Amino acid sequence: MHRRLVLAGLAAGATSLAGCQRVLRSRESRTTEATFEVPTDTPLAVALDNGSVGLAPYDGDVLDVTATVSGPSQEAIEGVEVVAVENDGELLLTRQVREAAASASVSVGLDVRYPRGLPVTRVETDNGSFDVAVTAITDEARFQTANGSLQVALSPALDATVEATTDNGSLTVEGFDFEVDETAGTASGTVGDGSNRLTLRTDNGSLRIVAYER
């Protein structure tokens, strides 16, 4: 069974932003807040084509989402909506294109607060940076971007074997005794019992792993 939840209000209230860098170009932008219920025993996933992701635990029982959609025109923005889809054993936050006018030039940035202890299974984007804090993951979890930086805060109580890679960018680890090869752009180590596997990767950008304390 599929359950589709639409982030309300993304089709109204655009604000024009003017920019002037080499080429004069206007952008439309809209920021909307919404909450989503979290199905029992369903891990969280976030997937975007183009946009940044902020993810942090809090002492609530719903997803608290702030979405910022921007693009070259109001028509393009109105062709995109943010949805939460319960499918294949995960609750997926993603963008959905409704109209042909919505092109790859539309970006969706998400700031998400999620219930503390909810497992995170994946965070993915083709173009954007992550600032993610996690207290629990699934057996196989991955956070990856093709173009952007990753900052990942891991709870010391997490059980994970971590493999991190950046093809082009700095790599630092703070608060954990990981093996770091800055020349190769790799880091590996164990948090807790290491019973789960966490893969972190950026093709082009810095990667920073820190300890999350709360």
Rank of each mutant, 00 (worst) to 15 (best):
H2S: 12
R3K: 15
L5C: 04
V6C: 04
A8L: 09
A8D: 15
A11R: 15
G13F: 02
T15K: 13
S16Q: 15
L17V: 15
A18E: 11
L24Q: 05
S26G: 10
T31R: 09
T32Y: 05
T35M: 01
E37M: 03
T40K: 12
T42H: 12
P43A: 03
A45F: 00
A47M: 04
G51R: 02
L55C: 08
A56I: 11
A56M: 12
P57A: 01
V65G: 02
T68C: 12
V69I: 15
V69N: 05
G71Y: 05
S73Q: 02
S73K: 03
I77L: 15
V80N: 04
E81A: 13
E86H: 14
Q96V: 06
A100G: 08
A101C: 02
V108E: 03
G109K: 10
P115K: 07
L118A: 03
V123G: 07
V123E: 13
E124F: 00
T125V: 06
S129C: 11
T135D: 14
A136R: 13
R142E: 09
F143S: 08
Q144T: 13
Q144M: 07
S149Y: 04
Q151T: 15
Q151P: 02
V152G: 01
V152H: 03
L154W: 08
L158P: 11
D159H: 13
D159C: 01
A164L: 02
T166D: 06
N168C: 02
S170A: 05
E174Y: 07
E174V: 08
F176Q: 05
F178I: 12
F178Q: 12
D181Q: 07
D181R: 08
E182R: 05
A184K: 04
G185C: 09
T186I: 13
T186F: 07
S188G: 06
S188V: 01
N196K: 00
R197I: 06
L198G: 04
L200E: 09
R201S: 08
I209K: 05
V210H: 06
V210C: 01
A211F: 04
R214K: 02
